[in-house]
Write a protein that binds this DNA or RNA. Structure first.
Lengths: 227, 227
DNA sequence: ACCTGAACACCGTTCAAGT
DNA sequence: ACCTGAACACCGTTCAAGT
């Protein structure tokens, strides 16, 4: 009876699978990879899963929660190998953050949502632990590490989020900033004018590396109590 | 003829004003203050201005551009007085960033949009100039100031953006993070467990102040060329 | 318990047509 | 040039009804 009751479904209809939370999230990740987070909507997912939007609410509280789940799923791909390797701690942090950034730069809208919906899943906690291990290895006092790691991740996330909303292949928006800086009058904006192109210089990679070194220096040398 | 041709419009209908860009933006700011940025939609604004949504597209390119214009308008309220006062440069930066943060914390969804749509209006450039003046006063080398000021503003903006999407008066989401940290197993997350509540300690104000000091130390002591 | 159709209350943007 | 109605192609979420 089992075999006989599947009429034409050899290949053409993949026998509509039962709805599960993980199935929904897996579909969400696939749609996001193919078309971006803005296409990951309840209605679109429902269509993809061959059901109505209302059905998804059995497994997912709302759209925000869904986006959070996607993020945690993807955070599993961050390369934490450098954390256990026993090399230079600064280079270790640089490597972990580079991996994190490269992941999110390809998915900027997810980075944007990560800034608002603080992740708290397993993969996020593993990332946090890896960074704290490296800070400890570098002799950073615990209280400074605890607050500093937050800024480290926040800056990395915000940098990635900046690339969201850029269909903008020609960098129209970047040009607007550049033009504004260059057209600045020396009277009203003396310092912006003086610095000029220096403000916009450097590749994203170069700036990220300097910023990481800068943050580590700050974290290492700034005690928590004002003394 | 001028006076006579206004029939009943003494008070009841405020004589539908001509559509202008600044009128649209003013209305947008008002709606945002009253109901939040998520209510500032083309359709809602059109209704407010007693016209159809299509009419707005004569003055505003799209929703993103509109949000950018709102932000620049509001940035005029940031208090830059500390920049010219000639006091301690660190305290000056702290004061300017505090003013900027307090503005955006009340409008977190605007902060979120600021992260993606880099502002380039007059008020933003004035803010940039004020911070650069203070960094110069502190003897920060030009190239370090140029890259550092970006991180300074990015961190302030991201901190404010984190409060977006919180109808969340009871802090449900914050509790999720706290629970995750506390339930962390010592085996798998030794450093997160060890730091524990330290990770979540401190008021936003205290953390912001430490973070600002930390960034200034980093910017001041990190040369651009790796040597 | 899970799943669904249908409905409610919205969106952004474009376009042909009017003034 | 500016303004508009109407349309196109979507949204999130809820709820009563079914299985």
């Amino acid at each position: 009876m089992t075999a006989r009751s599947e009429p034409v479904s050899r290949r053409e209809r993949p026998a509509k699978p039962a709805l599960t939370r993980s199935g929904i999230i897996a579909t969400a990740v696939r749609v996001m990879r193919a078309e971006g987070l803005q296409r990951v909507t309840m209605r679109r997912l429902a269509k993809e899963l061959d059901t109505g939007p209302a059905s998804l609410y059995v497994y997912v509280a709302n759209t925000t929660e869904l986006h959070g789940a996607i993020l945690d799923e993807l955070l599993g791909e961050v390369d934490l190998a450098a954390a256990g390797a026993g090399g230079d701690w600064r280079e270790g942090i640089e490597a972990v953050l580079a991996s994190y950034t490269h992941l999110l730069v390809q998915l900027p809208s997810l980075a944007q949502s990560a800034l608002v919906a603080r992740p708290s899943g397993t993969n996020y906690l593993n990332l946090l632990d890896a960074l704290l291990a490296l800070l400890k290895q570098g002799g950073v006092p615990d209280d400074q590490a605890a607050w500093g790691v937050d800024t480290l991740l926040q800056v990395a996330t915000a940098s990635a989020a900046e690339h969201a909303g850029e269909d903008d292949t020609d960098g129209t928006e970047w040009k607007a900033v550049a033009a504004a800086v260059e057209n600045a009058s020396a009277d009203q904006l003396p310092h912006v004018t003086a610095l000029g192109s220096e403000l916009l210089s450097g590749s994203p990679e170069t700036r990220r590396k300097w910023t990481t070194r800068m943050l580590l220096n700050g974290i290492l040398h700034t005690p928590r109590d004002t003394s």
